[in-house]
């Protein structure tokens, strides 16, 4: 997963729901120094809550996408993030 162009990540999930796996894995995919380059907020829901889990990502160009973590799965989420990151990296390469 290309994480260079992400500036903000916010996730909400209930760890006791099996569907929260995607959001948790997304957090573990971020590099070790992610906290220095991006702002990461995580909200844990209580055990009984039924609210859906989601991953919200903001990129350097200001684009914000909100991904439904329950439907997409970790592969789908990574694909969506990479789709926009590749555009940004191409623009970056052309500019330099």
């Amino acid at each position: 997963m290309i994480t260079r162009f992400i500036t903000e990540v916010s996730t909400v999930f209930n760890p006791f729901s099996p569907k929260a796996k995607t959001a948790r894995l997304f957090l573990s995919f971020l590099p070790p120094d992610a906290r220095q380059t991006m702002k990461i907020t995580t909200k844990l829901l209580p055990r009984s809550s039924k609210e859906p889990s989601f991953v919200q990502v903001k990129f350097k160009d200001g684009k914000e996408i909100k991904l439904d973590a329950e439907k997409l799965g970790i592969k789908g989420v990574a694909e969506e993030v990479n789709r926009h990151s590749r555009i940004l990296s191409r623009a970056d390469e052309l500019a330099n």
Binding site: P15, F16, R24, L27, P32, R35, I40, T42, L44, P46, R47
Partner: peptide, 18 residues
């Protein structure tokens, strides 16, 4: 910052963060 408390197991019972 990178550690995330998920839950606990106390005397065989499962507890969430609260």
């Amino acid at each position: 910052q990178k550690l995330l408390l998920l839950g606990a197991r106390v005397e065989g019972n499962v507890f969430d963060v609260e």
